[in-house]
């Protein structure tokens, strides 16, 4: 698929349009294999307090660096702009990256974003020099505002985080595609390969997923499936699908038949 236009975030080109999370795998070994199978060049991590009782040396930062994967820290678990901003600054200092997946959660159960807090945090972090990739609702107006603020991409949810419900509102995703010029990445909700393909067929620039791979019975195989789905969906989008019609149009010639 080398002929495809490049996928860029903040001027940095990437071959892969699949971004992957690092949470919830059976173990580090499976995670490493799944990331490799996915072809992803960007992987997310969270920022958490150091535990002083910890003895294990498993260090996701060191591992991803070793694998040559670009690290995208998130602000998961933050419920206020204030906490998200501090978390972003800590992440920048700890991981030496200006990339931040900005999450400001409004509700524990749905994990839906708090839009007001998200916009406030995005504005501050853009001013502070971050490359802000906000996890947001599939709301065209919110996405437009985030793009206007200067976010490097918009990342609307397809469905609630970890729900595996797929792209619940493809029409909104389509409208968002038309409204914003920055990269559009569906983040959250993908349950299986066809969901990722649908997101790409709608014109998204990329897909960010985690649970669908990490919690699959065979994470490495699902990672490979997601890679193919994202590539297939992108190709189908570029190829241009035929319009939907209610009735048949025969594809074989209608003349020269017997009898």
């Amino acid at each position: 698929m080398k002929q495809m236009p490049e996928f860029k975030i903040a001027e940095q080109p990437y071959q892969s349009r699949l971004l992957i999370g690092t949470a919830g795998y059976p173990n580090f070994h499976v995670m490493t294999q799944a990331i490799a199978a996915s072809g992803a060049e960007i992987a997310t991590v969270s920022m958490r307090r150091v535990k002083f009782t910890e003895t294990s040396g498993e260090n996701v930062f060191a591992l991803l660096r070793e694998l040559g994967i670009k690290i995208l820290p998130n602000t998961a678990g933050c419920f206020t702009a204030k906490d998200a901003i501090l978390t972003a600054h800590l992440a920048r200092e700890a991981l030496e990256t200006t990339l931040i997946k900005l999450e400001v959660i409004g509700d524990e159960q749905t994990q839906f974003p708090d839009v007001a807090q998200l916009l406030t945090a995005a504005e501050t972090l853009v001013k502070d020099g971050f490359t802000v990739l906000p996890y947001c609702n599939d709301d065209p107006i919110t996405c437009k505002k985030l793009a206007d603020i200067g976010c490097a991409a918009v990342m609307p949810l397809g469905a609630p985080i970890g729900s595996g419900m797929g792209i619940r509102n493809p029409y909104n995703i389509q409208i968002i595609r038309e409204l914003v010029q920055v990269p559009l990445i569906v983040d959250a909700g993908v349950g299986t390969a066809s969901d990722a393909a649908i997101a790409m067929e709608l014109g998204c620039d990329g897909v960010l997923l985690n649970t669908a791979v990490a919690k699959a019975h065979r994470p490495v195989l699902m990672a490979e499936a997601m890679k193919k789905a994202v590539e297939a969906g992108r190709a189908a989008f570029l190829a241009g699908r035929i319009p939907r019609k209610l009735y048949a149009t025969a594809s074989s010639p209608q003349v020269g038949m017997i009898a």
């Binding site: 949470a23 969270s46 820290p73 998130n74 978390t87 700890a94 991981l95």
Partner: peptide, 10 residues
């Protein structure tokens, strides 16, 4: 004082 590091996340 807050001391943080990266952990696996989505």
């Amino acid at each position: 004082v807050e001391i943080i590091r990266a952990v696996q996340g989505g």
